[in-house]
């Protein structure tokens, strides 16, 4: 097993650890996903294409991927701001704010969905403020975006934060001494250094948002073609005994996510190679 594919290394334990890892990955991830990859083809290629090409499916995929891109795009500046403030700022309650960032990680999605809907529904604390102007938050695309931004925020903050921490503050200070203002420091000095982390954070937030289910179904209107997300459509197909149809959609989403993650890992490796 240790053959030639692993570069020689004095450290022990590669064999057993690798074996355990492969067992673990295979049992819990690969075999189940294999079932998913095989299943749709019982429809035949034409059937798969027809199943993916229906307007309702396209609308759901467009909503899921569009809203997720939007939410991730919002999360990048927002997450950067929060991470920067948490790392460099000194203000009372900073540690509390720091801990709160992880809440979307830790809070069960269904609980988050109920809480966000309670807040943003037309009779909720925030929804009430917008309702008189005819602005709908819950049960419309803005509500979906809120839920997705909520779900993705910690990914950006937590990937950027450690890099910002490691970034020697004296570089920023030197820039400040040379007369640079905070926004300039951010754009010229900080941003290039954290670009890889920002990219990872964006990808993670995006991937998480695409698959998000528990919190979104509470706050989305779930109207076909308008506010129906792709994961819900999978559930709907499942409930109609349409296993292959559900698997087709799941596989399409999986392929898109996998491509995304692989691309980010590749870019990451390129940046690392260039940097080191």
């Amino acid at each position: 097993m240790k053959g030639s594919f692993v570069r020689p290394n004095p450290l022990p334990g590669f064999g057993p650890a690798f074996g355990l890892t492969l067992t673990w990955v295979s049992l819990i991830v690969l075999i189940p996903l294999a079932a998913l990859v095989v299943r749709p083809w019982s429809l035949g290629i034409a059937g798969v294409l027809a199943s993916l090409g229906s307007p309702r499916v396209l609308a759901a995929l467009e909503l899921s991927f569009g809203a997720s891109l939007g939410a991730a795009a919002i999360n990048v500046p927002l997450g950067l701001l929060v991470a920067w403030v948490l790392v460099r700022g000194r203000f009372p309650g900073r540690q509390l704010a720091d801990a709160l960032v992880d809440l979307p990680f830790a809070l069960p999605t269904a609980v988050a969905g109920i809480a966000l809907t309670t807040l943003y529904a037309p009779n909720g604390w925030i929804g009430r403020l917008f309702a008189p102007f005819g602005v709908e938050l819950a049960y419309a695309v803005p509500g979906i975006m809120v839920a997705l931004v909520f779900a993705g925020l910690p990914y950006v903050v937590r990937t950027v934060q450690p890099v910002l921490m490691d970034l020697p503050a004296d570089v920023e200070e030197a820039a400040a001494t040379l007369g640079a203002r905070p926004p300039q420091i951010l754009v010229r000095v900080v941003l290039p250094a954290i670009l890889p982390a920002l990219l990872t954070g964006f990808a993670m937030a995006f991937a998480r948002a695409v698959g998000e289910y528990g919190s979104v179904i509470f706050i989305a209107g779930n109207m076909p073609g308008l506010t129906e997300i792709a994961p819900l459509l999978i559930v709907i197909r499942l409930e109609q005994f349409d296993y292959s149809g559900a698997a087709v959609l799941a596989l399409a989403m999986l392929a898109l996510s996998f491509t995304m993650l692989a691309a980010v890992n590749l870019v990451q490796q390129l940046l690392a190679r260039r940097g080191g």
Binding site: P32, L33, A35, L36, P231, A250, M253, L261
Partner: peptide, 21 residues
């Protein structure tokens, strides 16, 4: 990438795969 995949897989799919098996 494979190890990180479950993070980006919709929870619905995470349940579905076990039903398929």
């Amino acid at each position: 990438t494979f190890i990180e995949l479950p993070l980006s897989v919709s929870p619905v799919i995470s349940g579905l795969v076990w039903v398929l098996l």
